[in-house]
């Protein structure tokens, strides 16, 4: 069960519009390593997580990602306020504008719509946590790429905050992975899937008597 808190996790106050930059940053709203995929990934993976530390971290990071999704939308919204048709045409924002005006829609920077294939929920905690660690790194790389394109402090500031959170989440997922491994066979962490066949190997074969 969720309730909405009527504030952003980190403030966004952008005075100078920049539709070209909005088109880059929207990738973190609906792109392959964006905040929507992050939230859905972690919240969906919770159900196959057998251990309390993992359940808590997936719930709490998945929830924080929803707040990051909102921050990205706020940035894109403020970068595209009060645009003139001329600004739209000159900035290259035209293709997005034709389909969505200045509404917020989840797509990648290249225009590809959001797709659930951008994340996995594999029903195996080790597999899932390795994906989560990679996802946090991929999002950090994307924020680095965005930061190289941004000159405006008002935009840099919240983007830097989001980048820092990717690093913290990577650390916490690493700790959650270590906790899962502490429950498993240290000689072979993939000997079985603790979410599906706890304590035994997945093979149904029986030794010959």
């Amino acid at each position: 069960m969720w309730r909405y808190e009527k504030r952003l996790q980190y403030p966004v106050n952008i005075s100078q519009t920049n539709p070209k930059l909005a088109q880059f940053i929207i990738s973190q709203y609906g792109g392959p390593d964006g905040e929507s995929a992050a939230s859905m990934r972690y919240l969906s993976q919770r159900y196959a997580m057998p251990y309390d530390k993992g359940k808590a971290i997936l719930t709490d990071i998945g929830t924080e990602e929803l707040a990051h999704w909102e921050i990205i939308a706020a940035i894109v919204h403020q970068l595209t306020r009060n645009l003139t048709p001329q600004e739209i045409e000159e900035s290259g924002f035209g293709p997005y504008y034709i389909d969505h005006t200045t509404g917020i829609w989840p797509q990648a920077a290249g225009g590809i719509p959001f797709n659930a294939c951008e994340f996995q929920s594999k029903g195996d905690p080790i597999t899932d946590l390795f994906e989560d660690l990679a996802a946090e790194q991929k999002a950090r790389t994307t924020y680095d790429n965005i930061l190289r394109m941004v000159k405006d402090h008002d935009v840099c500031d919240p983007i830097r905050f989001l980048r820092e959170r990717e690093i913290v989440h990577f650390q916490r997922f690493g700790e959650a992975l270590r906790d899962v491994q502490d429950h498993l066979d240290s000689r072979n962490f993939y000997a079985f899937n603790p979410a599906f066949d706890p304590g035994q190997k997945p093979c149904g074969c029986k030794k010959n008597q």
Partner: peptide
């Protein structure tokens, strides 16, 4: 809620979970 842990230990992560 995560801001309502009113004990000296971290009870937030304790089972059971709602699902």
């Amino acid at each position: 809620l995560i801001n309502q842990v009113n004990s000296n230990t971290w009870t937030w992560a304790n089972s059971p979970w709602p699902w």
